[in-house]
């Protein structure tokens, strides 16, 4: 399967063949993405797939600089959006696409959609954001964890995750964490919901227990990989395990 980009793509990787699949998990803060990714990875590895995970701000190039820049409140939203674009480009070029060429399944904890939602609600032009990120690879599957605001708040409180950014405190929506969280995440959920159609995201309910949600996600992944309910992959993880799909 040829690499398919949103726009002009990556200059050095324009016509590459991808044996693996890029699966993205999206959803608001505290919805449980990381836990679900870990479980998906274990499951896929047990089935014999080679799995690579990736998440925002983890590139060799930008991890130190971007982490530092985020800590202060000096950096502007547009500059941050560009810093994150550099981060994604570095991960795509030197980690994600090579892994896909080698037949791995790449599980991405967040992707461009989180950036679009985050900086869209902060007033950056939606059109400019989409153009700036048009180098990105179109995922083979994007799973969006759909959640009601009150359920999200409960999860955030239990996990003690009412932090500065999770509450969107930079936006001056309220003078206290809880109210700010509710207002900010409401906007984020609305922004995500708007994108599900635009980007053909697959909505998956995040309500219920961890394993209930995991079963829903696995069902979608099985369809993508053309797997039957109990089927396992025999070949070794390093091999091109999803050959002949197209």
């Amino acid at each position: 399967m040829k690499a398919h980009y949103f726009g002009a793509g990556i200059p050095t990787l324009r016509n590459v063949d991808l044996q693996g699949r890029l699966i993205v998990l999206e959803g608001p803060d505290c919805v449980g993405r990381s836990t679900q990714i870990r479980l998906l990875q274990e499951w896929l590895e047990n089935l014999g797939y080679g799995v690579v995970t990736t998440s925002l701000c983890r590139s060799e190039l930008t991890e130190i600089g971007l982490t530092k820049a985020k800590r202060g409140h000096e950096i502007g939203r547009r500059t941050l959006a560009l810093f994150y674009a550099t981060d994604l480009a570095d991960r795509l070029e030197r980690a994600i696409v090579p892994a896909l060429q080698g037949g791995f399944i790449v599980l991405a904890d967040r992707y461009i959609y989180t950036i679009f939602a985050r900086y869209g609600v902060r007033g950056l032009s939606a059109q400019w954001l989409r153009k700036a990120y048009s180098f990105a690879l179109v995922p083979h599957l994007t799973l969006y964890l759909e959640v009601d605001l009150d359920v999200l708040a409960e999860r955030a409180l239990k996990a003690e995750k009412l932090g500065f950014w999770e509450c969107g405190m930079d936006m001056n929506l309220a003078d206290n964490l809880y109210d700010s969280f509710m207002r900010y995440q409401k906007r984020m959920i609305r922004a995500f919901a708007k994108m599900t159609k635009e980007f053909e995201m697959t909505k998956v309910s995040a309500h219920g227990s961890v394993m209930t949600v995991q079963q829903r996600l696995r069902r979608r992944v099985r369809t993508l990989l053309d797997l039957k309910e109990t089927e396992a992959v025999i070949s070794a993880p390093e091999g091109p395990v999803v050959e002949g799909m197209d």
Partner: peptide, 9 residues
């Protein structure tokens, strides 16, 4: 480790 794209960005 800079590529044309990350150099630009």
């Amino acid at each position: 480790i800079l590529t044309p794209l990350t150099f630009a960005l």
